[in-house]
Design a protein around this nucleic acid. Structure first.
Length: 243
DNA sequence: ATAAATGTTAAGAA
DNA sequence: CTTCTTAACATTTA
């Protein structure tokens, strides 16, 4: 389910419910979320992989982890962690996910300049943070949500391939120009991911992720679990600079 | 049937 | 004290 762009699409899907009031809270984890009853959904925001349902001064934070999901007005009933029933027959059901209430202003809680899809995104700050990561492999720098909030394994692999950098290149050894290129590519591909996913053609434009062969030089792509993050890396030993 | 997948956190070990 | 490893969460698809 996740990666930042997917959460942005979930937000768009839920927008028609803004303005409605929660009449009933259900689900096997509803006890701790009873405080949402009678509250009006005043807005929806996202921060990286976080979906933020704003109810005035209280916000429900939803994180879908690896295989979480949600449904609007589900027709086939299924065990849900939380169900928010609104006016009449509108509802949102949350299945596997991490739910949390935030009772402070979101601007104090989140820094949107590190959200790869935000208007406030600051690429120079990301470059600076990577440069301070010493021996950390680029594949781990990219998965660091305090640098790139919203990047997941797909965006990681595609950005590294497209900027021609090896997942095991060490942060401090990569020239600044290359890091700039990488950070720019993360932002560019995240937007592309969003457009493609909306059109249902996300997989068609993958150049490295889950691919067998390098689209540039046509040798087989490497597929290995790398880095501290221990996630799949798809890369070309020929086209991606390791330093 | 079994494994692996767009992820994160917390507890325990080293 | 810090860093690393492991488990837990529990669904869907190949």
């Amino acid at each position: 389910m996740p990666e930042g762009p997917t959460i942005v699409l979930v937000r768009e899907k839920l927008l028609p419910l803004v303005g409605k009031t929660v009449q009933k809270v259900a689900g096997y984890e509803s006890a701790s979320k009873r405080g949402l009853r009678k509250r009006k959904l005043t807005g929806i925001q996202t921060w990286g992989k976080h979906l933020l349902l704003v109810f005035g001064d209280r916000t429900l934070r939803v994180h879908f982890l690896l295989f979480g999901s949600l449904a609007v007005n589900p027709d086939t009933p299924r065990r849900a962690k939380l169900v928010l029933h609104f006016n009449a027959k509108d509802s949102i059901a949350f299945y596997l996910c991490a739910l949390e209430l935030i009772d402070e202003p979101l601007v104090d809680h989140y820094d949107w300049s590190i959200d790869i899809l935000s208007d406030q995104w600051k690429s120079a700050a990301a470059v600076k943070k990577i440069r301070n990561k010493g021996n950390t492999a680029l594949c781990d720098c990219l998965m660091d949500q305090t640098i790139f909030s919203g990047v997941g394994n797909i965006i990681k692999n595609e950005s590294l391939f497209r900027s021609e950098l090896h997942p095991l290149a060490r942060a401090a050894q990569v020239p600044a120009e290359d890091l700039k290129k990488l950070v720019k590519e993360v932002r560019r591909y995240a937007k592309s991911f969003l457009r493609d996913k909306k059109k249902g053609v996300l997989e068609k434009h993958w150049q490295a992720y889950e691919q067998e062969e390098c689209p540039r030089c046509h040798i087989p792509l490497q597929k290995k679990i790398l880095g501290k993050s221990k996630r799949r890396c798809y890369y070309c030993n020929n086209c991606q600079e390791r330093y």
